[in-house]
Write a protein that binds this DNA or RNA. Structure first.
Lengths: 190, 190
DNA sequence: TTGGTTACGTGATGTAGATCACAATATTTT
DNA sequence: AAAATATTGTGATCTACATCACGTAACCAA
C-alpha cells in the first residue's frame, strides 16, 4: 500500500471526502524520507510542518539542561507528530523530533492545514477529532503519571504498544516513562 | 455581563458567527446553577454534557482506590470542563467534577455539539481550536511533571493562576500538583 | 580484525517526597 | 455560642527512585 492510500484510509475513518477532494487534499503533502538517527526538528528551529508517519518510528522529546531526555511521544505509522506548541504559536521549537529507525513521512505545512480546514468542512472535522483523541490520550497519560508507579506505567505502555519492546532501546522507554534506565532495568531483573 | 454575552465574546475570539447564528447556537445551551460542594459528574455516571463555566470554580478529579485524589483541572470562568473520555466514548465516568465554590454553568450536550459542528463550519473551527489549546496545555503539564520538582511546579501553577492561592484550599493545590499536602505545606514553611 | 560507541546490568549510597501521628486553627452547622 | 468538621502545620520515619560507579556484551565503521 502506498503512502497516498495509507493517508486516505486514515482520513476516511473520521471524514468523508470524494476522491477528487482527497486528491486535492493529498497534493499539499510532501513525501520525505529520513535515515535512522536523523533530526527532523531540533530545539530552536522554526517549525513549519507537522508530519504523518508512513513507516518507521520517531521520537518527540525534550532535553533538560542539555542532560536529561524526556520522550513525549513515540510516533508510529499513521500517527502525527510535530512540536505543536511551536507550530501553532510560531515560536522556536522546544521539542526535538528525530528518527529511531529509517522513516517515510508526509509533511503538511501549518499554512496548508489551515487553508484546507477552511476550504473543506470535513477536513476541519478530521483535525478536530484527531486533536481530540490526542487530548484524551494526553490526559490519560498525565493521570497515570500521578497515580501509578513505574512498574504499572511500564506494563501499561507495553500492553498498548507491544512492538516497542523490540523496536526501541530500553533507555528510550525509560525516557518515556520518566525514570532512569537503571530503575527500569531493575524492574524486570529483580 | 450575562452568560450569553460571556459565551459570545469567548467564541468570537476564534470563530465568526452572525448574531442570528449565535442566537441559534446559544439556544442549545442550558443554564445551570450549583452550590459549593455539589457534584456535577460522579464516577460511574453516564456523561451527556460538557460545561462552560460562567462564574465560580470547579475541579475535575480522579479518585484512586477510594483514597487519593488527583486533580486534572481547575475550571474557572470561560473554561470548559467534563469527563471527555466518557463523553466522547459514551462510557461511564471515571472522572468526577464538583464545585469548589457556587457556580453558574452553561451545559451543552454531546449530541448538540456534534450537530452544531456539522451545521456550522465555524463552530467546528471553534471546537478544533479549543481542543487544540487544551492538548498543548496538557502536553506542557506532562512535561513539567516529568522535568520539574514540586516546588517549581507549584510556582508555575501560581504564576499561571494567582487567584487559586486564595480561592482553593491548599490540599487541593497539592492534589493538582500530585504531592501530599504535607509536602506542599513544607515548601512554603521550611 | 580492531577500536569505538551504544546498550544493558548491578551494587552502593543519597534524597525527595510519602506516610503516620498529633496538634492547632478556621470555618460551618446547629 | 457550642459542637462538629475542614484546613493547616510539623516532627519522625520509611521508601521508591536517582545518582554514581563500574563491568560486560552487542553493534558498527574503518
Amino acid at each position: 500500500m502506498d503512502s497516498k492510500e495509507i493517508l486516505q484510509q486514515h482520513i476516511a475513518k473520521t471524514a468523508s471526502l470524494t476522491d477528487d477532494q482527497f486528491d486535492y487534499f493529498f497534493s499539499h503533502f510532501k513525501p520525505q524520507s529520513f535515515k535512522k538517527g536523523q533530526t527532523i526538528i531540533g530545539a530552536g528551529d522554526k517549525v513549519d510542518c507537522e508530519y504523518f508517519v508512513i513507516s518507521g518510528c520517531l521520537k518527540a522529546f525534550f532535553i533538560n539542561d542539555e542532560i536529561k531526555m524526556y520522550i513525549l511521544q513515540f510516533a508510529m505509522p499513521t500517527w502525527w507528530t510535530s512540536d505543536y506548541t511551536a507550530l501553532y504559536n510560531q515560536t522556536p521549537a522546544t521539542i526535538n523530533v528525530d528518527c529511531i529507525t529509517d522513516v517515510e513521512l508526509l509533511c503538511l505545512s501549518n499554512g496548508d492545514r489551515e487553508k484546507l480546514c477552511e476550504e473543506f468542512h470535513q477536513v476541519e472535522h478530521f483535525f478536530r477529532w484527531r486533536t481530540n483523541k490526542g487530548y484524551i490520550a494526553s490526559q490519560k497519560r498525565l493521570l497515570s503519571f500521578m497515580n501509578n508507579n513505574v512498574k504499572i506505567r511500564y506494563e501499561e505502555l507495553l500492553a498498548l504498544y507491544p512492538q516497542l519492546y523490540n523496536l526501541v532501546p530500553k533507555h528510550l522507554i525509560a525516557a518515556y516513562l520518566g525514570v532512569s534506565r537503571e530503575t527500569l532495568s531493575r524492574l524486570y531483573n529483580p
